[in-house]
């Protein structure tokens, strides 16, 4: 699976304003709502489900990266977006570091394989330090989109 298969370009945010976990989840879910990927009436339900998942254990997987996610019956396909926080957010990460790079995923409950393949793509690409560094330095959503496209074209990982 490629980034283009699940990341909504209009929902990418290079300048997250939130400074805590719930704020980031709300900001990114709003971005998906504004992009028409999630229904307005499902917004609260989705935010709550993502935060509930965080209670089980932080999705801050280290290297300044977090993958907040949930299954939700209101989506028919896997939807996701990318957010960057220049200041970093305390996300209770596994390694304790602040998180600068967020991949938020919402998947249909009956498609665990798609979710797994999206995680596979994100984690595989992020193993490349250059890709990781460039994403964190992105100042505009267009920069992020371009990096994701380059990653999809295997310019970072052979």
């Amino acid at each position: 699976m490629k980034f283009a298969d699940f990341v909504s370009p209009e929902a990418i945010r290079a300048d997250l304003e939130a400074d805590d976990k719930e704020g980031v989840v709300r900001e990114m879910t709003s971005a998906l709502m504004e992009a028409g990927k999630v229904a307005a009436e499902e917004y609260e339900s989705i935010v709550k489900a993502i935060l509930k998942r965080e209670e089980l254990g932080s999705t801050g997987i280290g290297r300044g990266v977090a993958v907040p996610h949930t299954k939700h019956p209101s989506v028919e396909n896997l939807v996701g977006t990318v957010g960057v926080s220049a200041a970093g957010v305390d996300f209770a990460s596994l390694d304790g570091d602040k998180v600068h790079l967020f991949f938020l995923l919402i998947s249909p409950p009956d498609r665990p394989g798609d979710h797994l393949r999206a995680l596979e793509n994100i984690s595989r690409q992020l193993r490349d330090e250059t890709f990781c560094k460039f994403l964190k330095q992105s100042k505009a959503s267009q920069d992020i989109l371009q990096l994701l496209e380059e990653a999809d074209n295997n310019q970072f990982v052979s």
Binding site: I61, G62, V65, G113, L116, L119, E120, S123, L126, R127
Partner: peptide, 11 residues
């Protein structure tokens, strides 16, 4: 490494 283990996409 969680990035490594996730990249296996082990179904």
């Amino acid at each position: 490494s969680i990035l490594n283990v996730l990249s296996l996409a082990a179904e």
